[in-house]
């Protein structure tokens, strides 16, 4: 609880609006909307590349068809850049308006029941959405300041390492596959969080199991 600086002090309606907007925008709910609502969709605003008509009336983008190896990989990576820029621009605005702090506020009371670490881990939890190193650094500090135990650190890091820097990674490298999947882009993201939480709980059970095993040796003699 001590580590709440910046949690709720500057949460405005804009923070909540930004948070809700981010979820809607990346969820793909309005992707197939036919009216003006489709403006609230990431993939709609990403648009498309112009098409080139080649031999036999086949159309393709500037990347062409039938490439391979390093050259094709390079062209493919170029194609992926606009959505990466766009996604991280949106994430930056949402973060700047305090949208991620809303997530932190909502998650803090859930940390104990969900992954068995105290609410003081909220900030590191949110940092882990954007950066592996930031989340891990904050976790080390939490232990040094005596806010979490060694076991809690192990559990928390099991949560962090799996799908670490979730938002940044998913909306940069993950973009490469967005065009090839048959589910809305928010579905794999939810699955990732589900398994992050599941992993932390597997570690929780493991630690419980080994502490039970070690108990007889560590048991103080006498009183």
């Amino acid at each position: 609880m001590q580590n709440e600086k910046g949690t709720s002090e500057n949460l405005t309606w804009a923070s909540y609006a930004a948070f809700i907007f981010a979820i809607i925008f990346f969820s793909g709910i309005f992707a197939s909307s036919k009216d003006w609502l489709q403006v609230f969709d990431f993939s709609v605003l990403n648009g498309s590349f112009g098409k080139i008509t080649g031999e036999a009336g086949k159309t393709f983008t500037f990347r062409g068809i039938g490439g391979s190896g390093a050259r094709d990989g390079f062209m493919f990576a170029i194609e992926l850049m606009p959505p990466v820029l766009f996604a991280l621009g949106v994430v930056s605005v949402v973060d700047g308006l305090g949208g991620l702090k809303v997530a932190q506020k909502l998650m803090t009371p859930l940390l104990k029941p969900l992954i068995g670490v105290p609410g003081s881990c909220g900030l590191a939890l949110i940092a882990n959405l954007q950066s592996t190193d930031a989340g891990a650094g904050m976790t080390k500090e939490l232990v040094q300041r005596g806010l979490i135990t060694d076991d809690e650190r192990t559990i928390f890091c099991t949560y962090q390492i799996s799908a670490s820097a979730t938002i940044t990674n998913y909306f940069s490298s993950g973009v490469a596959l967005f065009g090839f999947i048959s589910v809305p882009i928010i579905v794999p993201l939810i699955v990732m969080f589900f398994f992050k939480i599941l992993g932390a709980n597997m570690m929780r059970l493991y630690l419980k199991a080994i502490s039970r095993q070690e108990m007889p040796h560590n048991m103080p003699v006498g009183k």
């Binding site: 990466v84 996604a87 930056s92 605005v93 940069s172 490469a176």
Partner: peptide, 17 residues
Amino acid sequence: MFIDGMRSGLRIAITNM
């Protein structure tokens, strides 16, 4: 904020992705 975010997106895209 948007431009800053996109700039870091460009950096990640070029140096990482």
